[in-house]
Design a protein around this nucleic acid. Structure first.
Lengths: 233, 233
DNA sequence: CGCAAACTTGATGTTGCTCAAGCTAGGTGG
DNA sequence: CCACCTAGCTTGAGCAACATCAAGTTTGCG
């Protein structure tokens, strides 16, 4: 369990910039430092597996993590992608209910559960903010249920691109750090269907695919219409 | 937080039995009474619709509620069924992200948002309990993503029956207060597929269907094997 | 008892999956 | 520096699971 990737923590690290510290005063931030440790994982490494005892909360500082669940025969559902600022393991469930794996090289901040729980009880407003975070995740999960239960393949892919675009407002280009397999397992499709759908959207001028790991929305209205089911591909 | 005499309220109602009050002392329970009001809805009535401003938290006291999301063209995804003890609207999102409709006649306890938020900040341990509830819902949502994204029709129906059975431990019979349409929209299937699958499970002796709104698991191992994908129907 | 809504069952259709074959990009060694 | 190699991606052809369309049947209610 305690596989601390022994790597020097940069002393210049800015703890106050952590998502967990948002809105907290200087003294409490110091408290956060006391219960946290920085970790690095290289692409492909597992952070933790479904069923492992969950004695920590993680914050993604840099990179992208995939969260997934497995069926006994190997079928996989990616339940989400966590990027910088996202928290894993808010749930005090005792053990992890999904597996987390690094998609890119990842920097993490790990908070010991005991200290974290103490903060929940003692830091004013902290619990309420976590509740808001948890609710937001729940909302995303419900949107995903609608996607998985009722949307067509084209609608799923279009929705996915819009979601990523929303989370990366800086650039016109959308980074796709995850593989086609990850996308397929997130959208409840096969890689072939994902690939075909992206190709068709490109052929029709809705998007461009400058590289295998990049997409660009060329006709936002058309992609949105597609995602909403107003039009067929 | 101040106590207010509960005059507008049927005196025989046992407020201390509310899920919200679990673990709270007498004085705080009185506080709950102050911010709450009881409501009734008849089968088919809408409690609130997606997009409506969410100025309250609801607790289901009696009956069953369906939570659903709609696509513009009418496709529907039921994201969950809420029964006695379940809370709706924990999320301080500002407006509802799903529609809630009464499946049976329903009794509700409605808590004003403002008072509820005050309790989150002031009642020790309350926020933490809500966080646990929220996390539990998130976990259920992720299980449902796996179901919707990766399970076959037979696996979905079997999983659904086991889920209901788990939530109704009292009896051997499973109550199905929701229509086939509701089940189909929950499982991401059509009513025909749900009906056919139930019929087949009955024909094969896995379950019995004593009435249209009741099921009984006859061969639990077989149903579990089916739900896990170990065997085909 | 009769009616409408909900459910079941059957026949046919379509979307997305499976299987199979190329293609591309990035990394490695000559 | 380039050729090779491999993992990941794309494309195509056929197929299966589930959806759709269309009757029947049951249930519950007035």
């Amino acid at each position: 369990m305690y596989v601390q990737t022994a790597q020097a923590v940069p002393s210049k690290f800015d703890y106050a910039a952590l998502a967990v510290c948002r809105g907290l005063d200087r003294q409490v931030t110091n408290n956060v430092i006391a219960i946290s440790s920085l970790q690095r994982k290289t692409a492909g490494e597992t952070l933790f597996s479904e069923g492992d005892p969950a004695d920590s909360v993680y914050e993604v500082v840099r990179g992208t993590v995939r969260l997934c669940k497995l069926l006994p025969d190997g079928r996989r559902q990616v339940t989400g992608f966590a990027a910088a600022g996202d928290l894993l393991g808010l749930a005090p469930e005792g053990s992890w209910v999904y597996t987390a794996e690094a998609i890119t090289d990842v920097t993490l901040c790990r908070y010991r559960r005991t200290g974290f729980d103490r903060m929940i009880d003692n830091v004013p407003g902290f619990a309420r903010r976590l509740l808001a975070v948890s609710s937001h995740e729940l909302r995303a999960a419900q949107d995903q249920m609608l996607l998985l239960g009722r949307k067509t393949a084209a609608e799923r892919v279009a929705s996915f691109l819009l979601l990523l675009a929303e989370r990366q407002p800086e650039s016109g280009e959308i980074a796709l750090p995850m593989s086609r397999t990850d996308i397929a397992d997130y959208l409840g499709l096969t890689i072939e269907t994902v690939s075909r759908t992206l190709s068709k959207m490109k052929r029709d001028g809705l998007i461009a695919l400058p590289s295998i790991a990049t997409a660009e929305i060329r006709d936002r209205d058309a992609v949105q219409a597609l995602a909403a089911g107003d039009v067929e591909l």
